[in-house]
Design a protein around this nucleic acid. Structure first.
Lengths: 361, 361
DNA sequence: CTGAAAGCGCTTACAG
DNA sequence: CTGAAAGCGCTTACAG
């Protein structure tokens, strides 16, 4: 079917040198005379030769590959990943590639046995874990990874005693910014939609930021304006209906994710409330949907590109045995129409200008 | 840093057998006595042993990995991939995994030298190519792949003499369905927005379907209702403005992609036209944005899951040396609000029910 | 600057 | 059913 590929031995024969010299020349070793190197590399090009990664990997114990584990809480066979993580994937791949690493992807159900063998089987030198997860379940799996001496970086909250290194967003700050912005624009009764469970510490942190902003403004917290909702379709809608049933007045909603916020907006409008006139809405994540929805959703952006680069830098550092620190990134409020800001352009927050995703289609 | 991993030799020593027997037992060879196999596998589990893929791959000349090349025409460093292909990624990964294959991803610029070395370097056993592309540029690159004896499957049109195997959508049929639907709903002056260049045969095919539908209905084609537009942001908007300037009346638009359609809808509304009352709009792709936009976009869905499975089946078949055929999949009209259908539920077309992406967030 | 040699950890004919 | 042996294609001390 296919003529077997040329090997370094073939090149050696043609060049009239030893196979060892070919190997050195191809790796640009300074030990090889310039002239010899040129000649060997030219032959390699002519033969369409590429180093056999299996052989090289076997020798060096490196795969120059990073495994990216994407897990989602979606049940069943649906392969629909949170768009937020999906877009991170692109940046991770680019960043990895600039470090000379390939990226292997793997979709995991939270309930699965994670593929901790990626590293043990020498398919990858390290892992990056992506997904909003249940950190209680997480914990023991992470511990198993750590026990197996696997190198890994997590996108998510930095939790005390959590095994491994992580890069996350300063969710408290993000929740604070979103809520403060609503308050600055005259809203007084701001409802909260989302999970505050300890199992989802990232979301709980956003709630904490929401609470601080309200207290700092001298407003009172009201339990009846807090509706618990998970991140799946329909939950935001349901939450708004519950809020309306309770009868507690509200003039704004801070939703922990854009998915919930968008769903909530629809519920509001179908119940006869105008967004943002009757109820202002702010979300979190800045998924690409956010700016296309009507009214365009004001939200808190996490810098996906920076996050991706941080994760890759981290894992490459771990592979090289360098010290790596967990870190937290600053989120940024993106003001659009749904918050009813008097003048989107004037505030201290960023306007649409400077968006990175301008060319997306 | 990390205690070196156990090898099959370690297991052999503990089990008191030869290393060869360990290898056989771990691969469930029928040559090994049941009892011996059990014992060996138990020891492997205890030691947390995993076969070194580099070694196995070197021996067998297989990587059990598929490389997925995603390329986009976006310029520069932006890692924003067409959402349509991004969602295909998930399905491809699942399908590959069910065949025992890992997926390596790689982002390519159309202008790049493609990574034809994935297979030559034994990092992958075959490639899957994804992306709407310029098939003129494509062609020579595909030919280079073929020359290097690389196994690959392409998502896209089946073109005469095009090297390699492909799976695509019956775009002519899709364009026909979209246009006929508009006609059935009373529209008579249907504009076309999108590229009809031969460089993008998939889109040209959609245009061909549009033309057939109009001619079959006894309506006349009008060049002045056809506006050329590429798939990037803003092009759909510009196209509508051009259409309005021309002064040729139109009561519907068929746009070759959802991205263009959504952009066009915005332009219409900002120019004082109501969708669908004044102008009905139908798109193509059914990206996840489509159903969230207001009004929800009627569009033509390509079955992403089936496509992904077909591509993976194809590449696995090629790897195994089985005969593989290119194929075309039937698209499906998804009726929502933007087409102004009198009764979305009654037509022969699919209603929203039965959507696969219900749980996306 | 170059070569001969060892060895990474497997798989698989070959021999029993 | 099992073992001894060869060899996949590299990288890298070691010796010159």
């Amino acid at each position: 079917m296919k003529g077997s590929n040329p090997t370094s031995r073939d090149i050696a024969e043609i060049a009239g040198v030893s196979q060892a010299t070919v190997s050195r020349a191809l790796r640009n070793s300074p030990l090889v005379r310039e002239e010899t190197r040129q000649k060997i590399q030219q032959i390699a090009r002519d033969l369409n030769y590429f180093v056999n990664r299996n052989a090289a990997g076997l020798r060096t114990h490196q795969s120059h590959t990073i495994a990216l584990l994407l897990f989602d809480e979606t049940e069943g066979r649906d392969a629909v990943i949170n768009p937020f993580f999906l877009s991170m994937l692109g940046y991770i791949t680019r960043a990895a590639s600039s470090h000379g690493y390939d990226v292997l992807i793997s979709m995991q159900q939270l309930s699965d046995d994670w593929h901790i063998e990626y590293q043990a089987s020498h398919r990858a030198d390290g892992l990056i874990l992506l997904g909003y997860g249940d950190y209680v379940t997480y914990r023991e799996k992470l511990a198993a990874l750590a026990r197996a001496n696997t190198r890994f970086m997590i996108w998510g909250p930095t939790i005390n005693d959590q095994p491994g290194h992580s890069i996350g967003c300063d969710n408290i700050n993000g929740g604070y910014q979103a809520t403060s912005h609503l308050i600055e624009n005259g809203r007084r009764n701001i409802a909260f939609v989302g999970s505050t469970s300890k199992r989802a510490p990232e979301l709980a942190a956003r709630y904490a930021g929401y609470c601080s902003a309200i207290l700092d403004a001298g407003l009172g917290l009201c339990e009846r304006r807090k509706v618990s909702a998970w991140n799946s379709g329909g939950e935001g809608y349901r939450a708004v209906e519950e809020l309306l049933e309770r009868g507690e007045p509200f003039d704004a909603i801070f939703a922990v994710t854009d998915v919930l916020a968008i769903d909530a907006m629809r519920a509001l409008e179908e119940n006869g409330y105008s967004v943002p006139d009757d109820v202002a809405v702010v979300g979190f994540d800045d998924i690409s949907l956010a700016k296309h929805v009507t009214p365009a959703l004001t939200t808190v952006r996490q810098d996906i590109k920076l996050a991706a680069e941080g994760l890759v830098d981290g894992i490459v550092g771990l592979i090289k045995g360098e010290p790596v620190e967990s870190s937290l990134m600053a989120p940024q409020l993106i003001v659009r129409a749904s918050c009813g800001a008097r003048s989107p352009a004037s505030g201290p927050a960023a306007s649409e200008t400077g968006r990175r995703q301008s060319a997306h289609r």
